[in-house]
Amino acid sequence: MTRYIVKKIIDMIITIFIIVLIVFAMFELIPGNPARIMLGMNASNAQVAALEAELGLDKSIFVKIYTYFSDLFNGDLGFSFRFQRPVIELITEALPYTLFLALYAFFFIIILAIPLAILAARKPNSKLDNFIRISSETCLAIPPFFMAIILMLIFRTSQLALQGGSVDFDLNNAFQSYWMPALAIALSRLAMAMEFLRDSIIEQRESDYVKTAIGKGASRSRVMFFHIFRNSLVPFITALGLILAEVFSGSIIIEQVFLIPGLGRSLVTAVEARDFQLTQGIVLLIAFIVVFVNFCVDLINQFIDPRIREQNKKLYKSRNTFFLRMKNQANLDSQKKR
């Protein structure tokens, strides 16, 4: 297990190294002079040149890359010349918004997907099932920003209106004020989670142990919740992990529409200002989150490896719980070591 984690961390470092190089190369190729952007049209070329020298933009790319990496190794993400502040500060200010938005959207996905999936799975290919599936797929087909516009039109309200005119982020009110952007993201990602859970519920229901349970005379709802639903959850959580990574990248555009000062808006501002240190910092953070989530998903994947599954299935026939299964996994691990 430790070896696996170490290997993954090395992979991650290499990936981050490649990302930094790609972003650097892109900034070299993309036209636009950061100093000129800061000073605007009414500045003379001499002023622009002076500012460039002051910001250290006139150095060669190799010097810049070397400096960036040596800073990075010291845990320094660099300095944003657009905001004249350390990148790490700007990121830690913006991250809570994006994190909250992503988790809130995630929460919506869960509370919508579970009942819908259970409903849909009751009778596969019934009218209800088809209706639920097609509506959720229609949502999947709507571009997220268009979804945001539709929501704004329907509810005739916006982010600031929801916050009651207050301009500060306040966690107490955040649940009330972020529901619309969160819903916009959630709706466009709902279909994947919903269908996945539906399929796995149907799959579980057809499995032997459930049939056994029904045969033993367990009540329908009891079987539904204690056997089928619970066992469908583990793969469902895996899928959610993947969706979470997407929700993160999906929030970039939603933040533009809903005035949310999160990572997405910072990224757009940074790119537009050609603020490469800030851009690097945000890209790296997003990359890290995506890689980290994938890493967790891999772990869970290993956990539900078919071999382990077979072992578990025997256990399911007795009264099983999620935790029992975890315990079983631990036993398996120790057996392997031996």
């Binding site: 000129r36 952007i37 049209m41």
Partner: peptide
Amino acid sequence: VDWGTWLSDVFQGRNHQSTVIALTFD
């Protein structure tokens, strides 16, 4: 083109055939 490109290529570099812009004055 995006604003940054416009400033450096069109405005400072004068590398354009024609462009639409609003001039503002300090």
